[in-house]
């Protein structure tokens, strides 16, 4: 099964299976990699938006927490982490 990161449930670790690098700009892609968001990495979505919007998404990558927009999260496919 292949879900997108923008709709993954909060608080549950998932593994990035595929990132649609072609759909995003060069800079966007680079910043994602600098944040450590790459295929094979485990991430946990933590917070989503506020009162007025479902954007942005805060997630943890390793020991870091980063914020991205739902639009970018929609380009990231995730799968359940291996048990």
């Amino acid at each position: 099964m292949n879900a997108k990161l923008d709709s993954a449930p909060l608080g549950v670790a998932v593994r990035i299976s595929r990132i649609d690098w072609d759909a995003m700009s060069h800079d966007e892609g680079r910043r994602l990699r600098e944040f450590g968001l790459m295929e094979g990495i485990d991430v946990t979505p933590l917070h989503r938006g506020s009162l007025f919007s479902r954007d942005p998404l805060a997630l943890s990558v390793g020991r870091m927490q980063v914020i991205i927009r739902a639009r970018q999260a929609a380009m990231i496919e995730v799968a359940p982490t291996a048990p």
Partner: peptide
């Protein structure tokens, strides 16, 4: 401050800006 930016991003996005 980054948390404030996170919370405000939704509103700022509506007027074409970002957190």
């Amino acid at each position: 401050m980054t948390r404030a930016a996170f919370l405000m991003d939704g509103i700022m996005a509506k007027v074409g800006l970002s957190g």
